Simulated scan of single mutants.
Amino acid sequence: MISVIVSYRIKPEFIEKNKENIQIFLKDFEQLDTSKFKYSVFVKEDGVSFVHYSQYADENMQNELLNVPSFKAFQEMRDASGLDGSHKVEILHSVGTKGNLG
């Protein structure tokens, strides 16, 4: 399994558009085999810091998801909005998990 956290801060004037773009690609993700990935997006209390947490069954599923056109468009618009250098991608290695909270 592949687990990734992506975090970034955006300008306040881009918050609503960023949220709209996220909803668009999440809806498109419904067309994929949802038994092979989990993708969650959070906004921190400051309102401008976003965290995307994703898990993929394998590299093929990760590549398929990352190439969804609306997701690529989201990334382009997010990057063009003027990120402040906070964009960070982290690969996680599982140590263990308990529970099944949906």
Rank of each mutant, 00 (worst) to 15 (best):
Q23P: 00
R78D: 11
P12G: 12
G96D: 06
Q62N: 12
I24V: 13
F25W: 01
G102D: 13
E13L: 05
V41Y: 07
H93C: 08
K19C: 10
E20D: 14
K27W: 06
M1S: 10
L101V: 14
D58G: 01
L92C: 08
R9T: 11
T34I: 08
A80F: 01
V68F: 02
N67M: 10
I15W: 05
F42R: 01
K17M: 14
Q62F: 14
R78K: 13
T97K: 12
T97A: 13
S86L: 06
Q23K: 11
V6Q: 11
Y39A: 02
L101N: 07
K19P: 02
N21S: 12
S49V: 09
V95H: 14
S94E: 15
V95A: 15
V6G: 02
N60T: 10
D84R: 00
Q55V: 09
D79F: 15
V41F: 10
E90W: 02
F74N: 08
V48N: 03
E16I: 08
G102V: 15
H93L: 12
D79R: 12
K88H: 11
N60V: 11
P12H: 07
V6F: 15
K44E: 08
V95C: 14
N67L: 14
D79H: 10
E64D: 15
K98H: 14
S49Y: 05
S70R: 03
D79L: 11
Y56I: 03
Q62L: 12
I24H: 05
V95K: 09
D84C: 00
N100P: 00
E45T: 01
A80M: 06
H52F: 01
K38R: 15
F37T: 04
L66H: 08
Y39W: 09
Y39S: 07
Q23L: 15
L66I: 06
V41D: 10
N18H: 13
N100H: 12
Q23G: 09
S35R: 03
E13V: 06
K88I: 08
G102L: 11
E30D: 08
I24P: 01
L83K: 01
S54I: 00
I5A: 09
E76D: 14
G99A: 01
